[in-house]
């Protein structure tokens, strides 16, 4: 069990260190953890993403809490949550101390030009992999593809509203499976 806590701490410290940007930047790491350790299933992971989106709090930290809990109970959730904020916590404080000296982040801006496409590519690969697994679990799932097309059309024109999208998916899932 101690080994599991240490592994959790290690993996989530790594996420805290390398996930730069919004909460969705932690997704590729969680997906990677899933394939590496199988602490949870892909279905559980998508459930966690959904729940983290509709509960209060930063999505990235919510997902850390949830995966930690699923993997190793309450202590697991404490470990993963504190791990994901540990290094950013220290860096944030250093940043406040330095911010008057370096008003902008020009020095690291050039690096960000490369980090942003990397973040989008990571997210795109997850989106495509999940899409493939949903549309083609063992055989072609026509219902899933149908529901996907019905949902994506209106929502791609609207302002992003996670709560509404998840609610629509839940209702759609219940309706389409009752036929």
């Amino acid at each position: 069990m101690i080994k599991l806590y240490l592994l959790l701490f290690y993996e989530f410290t790594k996420i805290g260190l390398f996930a730069i940007g919004g909460g969705y930047s932690t997704l590729p790491f969680l997906y990677y953890i899933q394939t590496k350790y199988q602490w949870f299933t892909i279905d559980e992971l998508t459930n966690m993403i959904a729940v983290s989106n509709i509960t209060p709090g930063p999505i990235g930290i919510n997902m850390a809490t949830y995966t930690g809990y699923t993997t190793a109970g309450i202590i697991g959730s404490l470990v993963s949550t504190s791990a994901i904020i540990s290094i950013p916590f220290i860096i944030s404080i250093l940043m406040v101390k330095l911010i008057d000296k370096y008003k902008t982040c020009n020095a690291i801006n050039s690096i960000f030009i490369g980090l942003r496409p990397a973040a989008v590519a990571l997210l795109t690969s997850i989106g495509l992999k999940l899409l493939y697994k949903t549309a083609y679990p063992n055989t072609l799932d026509i219902k899933a593809i149908f529901l996907f097309l019905i949902l994506i059309l209106p929502f791609s024109f609207m302002k992003k509203n996670p709560l509404l999208i998840i609610l629509a998916g839940a209702i759609g899932g219940i309706i389409i499976n009752s036929f």
Binding site: G22, Y24, L27, D43, T46, N47, I49, A50, N53, R116, P117, A119, V120, L123, T124, I126, G127, L130, L131, T134, A144, L147, F148, L151, I152, F155, S156, K160, P162, I165, I166, A168, G169, A170, I171, G172, G173, I174, I176, N177, S178
Partner: peptide, 30 residues
């Protein structure tokens, strides 16, 4: 079973959320 069906749909919602996030990030990243 009803909850399972709901999560069947929610999984598709999550994919859509990811795709919309990609769309939002695209312009200022690539």
């Amino acid at each position: 079973p009803i909850i399972q069906n709901a999560f069947y749909g929610i999984r598709i919602s999550v994919i859509i959320l990811i795709l919309i996030t990609i769309k939002d990030l695209w312009g200022k990243s690539i």
